[in-house]
């Protein structure tokens, strides 16, 4: 497997936030992780990204144990719920940031960023500052900035949580297209049931620091603890049987 997480544990004081985290993920796949606020999903992502130190356990990425490696050397990008664009840099420089850090040649940076701007449909926005963009545009820049450095693993922490329904839907499709085009391996954390089902090749549910992986989406839907059954029940009760709402 491309990513193997082995017995990760993390506590803050007496409270155990992540309990015996164990899962693996094949390359170029997206694992959706559904979980309510405070269930430990952000801590889990930060541990994998190297931004938080685990109390125990190992992280194997592409055959290498990266558990003790510093965040900047893991080639894993953690994306926050908010776009977190650099406020002092324009769109072009925000996307170019990772390439400049890696001291790539200027011609290479120019061509890669222009290509990315086109892909994100932001070709006319390169010189704009972050505060001049809409929420959806900002989130696209954030994706572009992460993807352009070709990360081994992308960690997405409720990336569309602050977007309106329409923009969120467009962003979900855009992410799926980009993930497919760039063969991205990712963990996609969300508290939105529909988003979890839509975005993942595989699906998991996190509750009180424990992660449960499902063999397929049918098993996930059938599990009453995920809340899918409640959701189905809600809609069935709302629409009387046999009535066609269209």
């Amino acid at each position: 497997m491309f990513l193997e997480i082995q017995y990760i544990n993390k506590s803050f004081g007496k409270e155990q936030i992540v309990k015996d985290l164990n899962f693996s993920l094949a390359p170029h796949k997206t694992l959706s992780i559904l979980g309510k606020s405070g269930c430990g999903k952000t801590s889990m992502l930060k541990i994998i990204g190297g931004l938080l130190k685990a109390d125990s356990g190992n992280i194997i990425l592409d055959g290498n144990d990266i558990s003790e490696l510093e965040a900047e050397k893991r080639n894993i990008v953690y994306l926050y719920q908010e776009d977190l664009l650099f406020p002092h840099l324009n769109v072009f420089e925000n996307i170019a940031f990772g390439l400049r850090i890696k001291k790539q040649k200027e011609a290479h940076i120019q061509s890669k960023v222009k290509e990315m701007l086109e892909l994100l449909e932001l070709e006319d926005q390169g010189q704009k500052m972050p505060h001049q963009l809409s929420g959806g545009q900002r989130q696209r820049v954030s994706f572009g900035r992460a993807i352009i450095i070709n990360p081994a693993l992308l960690l997405l922490d409720e990336p569309f949580g602050s977007l309106d329904a329409g923009t969120r839907q467009r962003m979900q499709q855009l992410f799926k297209d980009i993930a497919h085009k760039f063969k991205i391996t990712s963990l996609f954390v969300t508290h939105d049931l529909k988003e979890a089902i839509l975005m993942g090749d595989e699906i998991a549910f996190m509750q009180s620091g424990k992660l449960k992986l499902y063999k397929n989406k049918e098993e996930f839907i059938a599990d009453p603890s995920t809340g899918v059954q409640n959701e189905i029940g809600f809609w069935e009760n709302l629409i009387p049987k046999g009535q066609n709402i269209i």
Binding site: L51, N75, V77, Y80
Partner: peptide, 10 residues
């Protein structure tokens, strides 16, 4: 947060 993000970007 921007510093953490920058670390993740290398």
């Amino acid at each position: 947060e921007l510093s953490q993000l920058s670390r993740a970007l290398g």
